[in-house]
């Protein structure tokens, strides 16, 4: 396969949803080291609602589908996760507006749009020990794979590896955003919870293709 259809995007978000629901407690534990321990729960709340509303989401095109997912996530994820994850989905949906298919490169660009949307919403940038430190390397790896003519499965695998490595690298960073930033240097040696979660999510998505 060389392009993503709406069906593929549905499959990706469905895998993502299952990973988030299955790892609710594990993701909370990631957040307990330096944060306040509610990350997995906040995220699961939004994706649980997404699962409930799955059948009634808009399906005219890829952008519309992702945007309608973003609306549910923004409304039902608690805390900072709503605006961040919902904002990422909404920015992706805007990029993919009216598209029926996405090339591998467009798929990478769409995730790049999500990263830009998240940066704009939260004021963070790569290196601040946030999920951007997994997302941005994944986008770069996907783009590089697309440019080298890789197939979707190989590209997703490369993207997942980059996300996992990016999350691992956050262990050496000092948090400057979110509640982990209050403990300053005490956040060192723990990965950022959002980045680590994205590593797991990307890995499971790559496995599904």
């Amino acid at each position: 396969m060389s392009v993503f259809t709406l069906n593929d995007i549905e499959k990706i978000i469905s895998v993502m949803t299952e990973v988030i629901l299955k790892n609710e407690v594990a993701f909370c534990e990631l957040d307990s080291a330096a944060g306040d321990g509610d990350f997995g729960m906040s995220l699961a709340k939004g994706f649980n609602e997404l699962k409930k509303e799955w059948a009634s989401l808009e399906r005219t095109d890829i952008g519309g589908f992702i945007r309608s997912c973003g609306g549910v996530i923004a409304e039902y994820c608690g805390g900072a996760s709503g605006p961040i994850w919902g904002g990422g989905f909404k920015a992706s949906g805007k990029y993919a507006a009216e598209k029926k298919t996405l090339s591998l490169y467009e798929f990478a660009e769409m995730l790049g749009a999500a990263a830009d949307g998240i940066m704009k919403r939260g004021g963070a940038k790569p290196g601040d020990k946030t999920l951007l430190d997994a997302l941005v390397p994944a986008v770069d790896a996907l783009k590089a794979a697309a440019a080298s003519g890789a197939d979707v499965k190989t590209a997703l695998k490369k993207g997942a590896e980059a996300a996992v490595n990016g999350a691992e690298a956050t262990k050496n960073m000092i948090a400057s955003r979110g509640r982990a930033s209050y403990v300053g240097e005490r956040s060192i040696s723990y990965p950022d919870a959002g980045a680590a979660a994205l590593g797991v999510i990307f890995t499971k998505i790559a496995d599904a293709f």
Binding site: D38, M41, E75, Y76, G78, G79, G82
Partner: peptide, 11 residues
Amino acid sequence: CGDVFASPSSV
């Protein structure tokens, strides 16, 4: 009122 220790949503 948000959930425990989580901001309420913008909605």
